[in-house]
């Protein structure tokens, strides 16, 4: 009995240490840091000024709102594109072929995000590959700048997020019995009804977990908005970076970090409430 307990502790301690030292402690430290402010001379004191700054300075909360809205947009677009893809792979494509398709989806992730983003830049830039072909084909007479705008930024963000939406959808659609679709069809349902009454309700958990992952990843992305987004694409992570690195204001940066955590959790919570789900169900 004692041996059993010991065994449990031996296995539990690394997990506990990992959770505590690498997740809990840094967060506590960051949180304490966010509650301190520094005056011109460098003396620190306790205050909520860092949090107040966020709400009183429009540039900060506007950046957050912008980041959140774009992240929601990216999540929606990703879901709309990923759904037919996942449906095709699981239900339409030949099973032998579908493995290959899944690997194709995975392929962009064999290189780092930076390389992927640079790849897009080479394609889209004014002197880039797409422009070159369009010029050669005579479809345009003058090069067009396709980089440095919100549309291409959203496009690359969607591209980067696709996999994280497709994978949960694959597994949830895999578990959808084909005969349910056939039964609905047999009972007189149109394709649209089958989609809305059978397939979507069944896919809800996968859709939700994919959406949460994509939303968080997009919200926390730094590279893509920075490199593709162009001159006006301020992203909230960039604000945090600026506070930590350029302004040397770690206290403000820590407060922003916590606000990002809290506000994104709030958005997810509202999303779950609106779709009448709960997190434990989704995580399962």
């Amino acid at each position: 009995m004692a041996g059993k307990k010991l065994g449990f502790y031996v296995f539990f301690i690394p997990v506990f240490l990992w959770l505590f030292l690498l997740i809990v402690v840094p967060h506590i430290e960051l949180f304490l840091m966010s509650l301190r402010t520094e005056d011109w001379v460098g003396n620190t004191s306790w205050s909520l000024a860092n949090y107040k700054n966020f709400f009183s300075e429009p540039i900060y909360w506007l950046t957050f709102v912008r980041t959140a809205i774009y992240s929601i947009l990216v999540t929606c677009i990703t879901a709309i594109i990923a759904f037919p893809v996942a449906f095709f792979i699981t239900k339409v494509a030949n099973p032998r072929f579908s493995g290959f398709l899944a690997v194709l989806l995975l392929m962009p992730f064999w290189v780092s995000e930076l390389v992927r983003v640079y790849g897009w830049m080479i394609l889209l830039r004014e002197s880039g590959v797409i422009n070159h072909f369009l010029l050669q084909l005579g479809l345009i007479s003058k090069s067009v700048e396709m980089l440095y705008n919100d549309i291409s930024m959203v496009m690359v963000l969607v591209y980067t997020s696709m996999l994280f939406m497709v994978v949960p959808l694959l597994s949830v659609l895999e578990s959808l019995d084909d005969s349910l679709i056939e039964a609905a069809y047999d009972l007189g349902a149109s394709s649209w009804t089958i989609l809305t009454k059978i397939i979507l309700p069944h896919s809800k958990p996968g859709l939700t977990s994919g959406a949460i992952v994509v939303f968080m990843l997009t919200l926390g992305n730094y590279l893509t908005p920075n490199l593709i987004g162009g001159k006006s694409s301020l992203w909230f992570t960039e604000q945090i970076y600026t506070q930590f690195i350029a302004s040397f204001n770690w206290n403000q940066g820590a407060a922003f970090g916590f606000l990002l955590l809290a506000l994104s959790s709030l958005i997810i919570w509202i999303g779950l409430k609106l779709t009448r789900q709960n997190l434990t169900k989704v995580v399962q």
Binding site: I59, S232, E238, T242, A246, S247
Partner: peptide
């Protein structure tokens, strides 16, 4: 001086955020 950079960072943020 240290505080100079904080002033600049705020301006730079503003420029970047402007439409």
């Amino acid at each position: 001086p240290a505080q100079i950079e904080a002033i600049e960072a705020k301006i730079l943020d503003k420029v970047k955020a402007a439409r």
